[in-house]
């Protein structure tokens, strides 16, 4: 009985392996390339000289005061796309509460003039992927003053750019309102350059 079962077991393992492991991804890749080539390649953003400066979907680190800062990241040393992940610290973790969150709150208070108790929850916490490209509108608005100061620009001009990049819920109800940090910062550099082009 076992021998009779062995042939279908081995043959179907190989056949299904080819169909689902090679033919199927091949079909999907072909269709994807034909229909949505930009997305299939990672929604990459290139600079004028053709260099890849990021993906619209993947957050990247920003630390300078003239840029909007993304959320804290636990991916590698921050926004390392080959080491995606969260802190995985639990709700009663001293490290999370007293180090990571406390530091983020302190920095928001010190740099952005946030009030203790009203620090946006996404600002103080790390995302699941460590690559979160978004921040909440509250987080973005909190940073407006600092960015404007660093760029010697008017707050309202910066705020206007933030407003432009506010993404509502998808189709009106899916997900949450958010701001894409990379796109916002690129727009910022374009509209309100730190060092105006000579």
């Amino acid at each position: 009985m076992l021998r009779k079962q062995l042939r279908p077991a081995v043959m179907l393992t190989l056949l299904l392996c080819v169909i689902t492991g090679l033919v199927y991804p091949g079909i999907v890749t072909g269709l994807a390339r034909a229909l949505f080539p930009r997305q299939a390649d990672g929604s990459l953003i290139t600079s004028a000289d053709g260099a890849v400066i990021g993906s619209a979907l993947i957050g990247q680190p920003f630390a300078k005061p003239e840029y909007f800062h993304p959320r804290p990241s636990a991916a590698g040393n921050g926004y390392d796309d080959t080491l995606s992940g969260g802190t995985n610290l639990g709700p009663t973790s001293a490290k999370l509460a007293d180090t990571l969150i406390a530091q983020a709150v302190d920095s928001a208070i010190k740099n952005d003039g946030a009030r203790k108790g009203s620090v946006p929850s996404d600002l103080a916490t790390s995302s699941a992927s460590g690559l979160d490209p978004h921040i909440s509108p509250a987080n973005a608005f909190l940073q407006v003053a600092r960015v404007a100061r660093a760029r010697h620009a008017d707050s309202s001009a910066v705020r206007a750019i933030v407003q432009k990049h506010l993404e509502d819920r998808q189709f009106g109800f899916f997900g949450e309102p958010r701001v894409n940090v990379l796109l916002l910062n690129l727009d910022l550099d374009h509209t309100l350059p730190v060092h105006p082009a000579p």
Binding site: L96, G117, S118, S121, T125, S127
Partner: peptide, 26 residues
């Protein structure tokens, strides 16, 4: 505990609130 450290856990139109540790904004 996080609220006591200064985090605003109350959701609003602009703040996700709650426990955002390990969650994506979108």
């Amino acid at each position: 505990i996080h609220a006591a450290r200064g985090v605003d856990v109350v959701a609003s139109a602009v703040n996700p609130g709650g426990n955002m540790e390990g969650k994506e904004v979108r």
